[in-house]
Design a protein around this nucleic acid. Sequence first.
DNA 1: GTCTATAAGATGATAGAC
DNA 2: GTCTATCATCTTATAGAC
Lengths: 191, 191
Amino acid sequence: MSERDTRGELLDLAEKLVRTRGYNGFSYRDLAGQIGIKTASVHYHFPTKGDLGEAMVENERELFARNLARLDAEEKDPQRRLERFIQLFQASTIGCDNRMCLGAMLAVEQETLPEPVRRAVLRLFEHNEAWLAKVLEEGREQQTFRFKGPADGAARFVFSALEGALLMARAFRDVGRFEAATRWIIESLSD
Amino acid sequence: MSERDTRGELLDLAEKLVRTRGYNGFSYRDLAGQIGIKTASVHYHFPTKGDLGEAMVENERELFARNLARLDAEEKDPQRRLERFIQLFQASTIGCDNRMCLGAMLAVEQETLPEPVRRAVLRLFEHNEAWLAKVLEEGREQQTFRFKGPADGAARFVFSALEGALLMARAFRDVGRFEAATRWIIESLSD
DNA sequence: GTCTATAAGATGATAGAC
DNA sequence: GTCTATCATCTTATAGAC
């Protein structure tokens, strides 16, 4: 991880702020104040806010890769893998200060972001969807999942439904909404 | 509508800006510049940005009520009503400059909003869900929809899945993603 | 790496004239 | 209703000392 040095602290705090307040909802002043340094020092680590944004998404992509590699190693059953993915998604969002998904927050604000950040977000989404497609296809071969068409389509549906469930659960500050939605999603794959 | 007077123009422009750039992604300066007046004049119509936010959501709630009343009058079949609702949702979002749903955009930024705006957004969501629940229940009674448990739960699922589909389709700037998701949603109600 | 100092511009907002 | 003028504050960012 990258938590002990100032750069890592800044990255973590910035991520928290983006995920609760949005990219345009925090400033270098907030970062500096909460960490106890001056804004000039923040600029030393991340010259522009765009640099900070890119680093955050890159960080998230690595975390995602590590988490899913571990998940693949620990769990072989497709249904269980999907459930664990959803747990991971929930624990890092509504389960953590009612945060939004980093990619979703940035995607929503895409028009105000530097292009490299926007592209990094799309790559992050694609990695998520690719992992889901793999798990769903395995599950279909083992008859635990049932759906029509390419697994990509199912993966896109599952991921987008999770993002929507998060958005609404977070709006109402009601984890129950998220959990209810996940039951609908899983059930729609096993009719 | 409210398009001919300055207040109406401001409301429309502000809504467009919120739905493309977010509440924190535009300023009174943007409004004034694009309409051709000064920021002081904007403050005459909406003393604070919070007032503007409230008025926008109120405006949207009225539009929503009018649209759905018309839809109820024009269409009786539950399946067709749901499809028309989705068309309406699509046409006013990705179908319109790749805009986000107003409620979703504001919900995502909730932590930075005045409380009255946040509460207005929740009411808007609840109205959408209530209409959907009514349609879904009718459809179940007529055997066109099939789902378990209270219609409220199904309505929440449908609405959150639509919001998620919009979020992802807008991120990738690909209407096809939205349309594919709607097919999954409708199909999950008729297995 | 962190600081002080500073910049140029943006932001939400108000007072008061026309 | 719209303007000019002005506000205090915030925002991202840089130069240069320690």
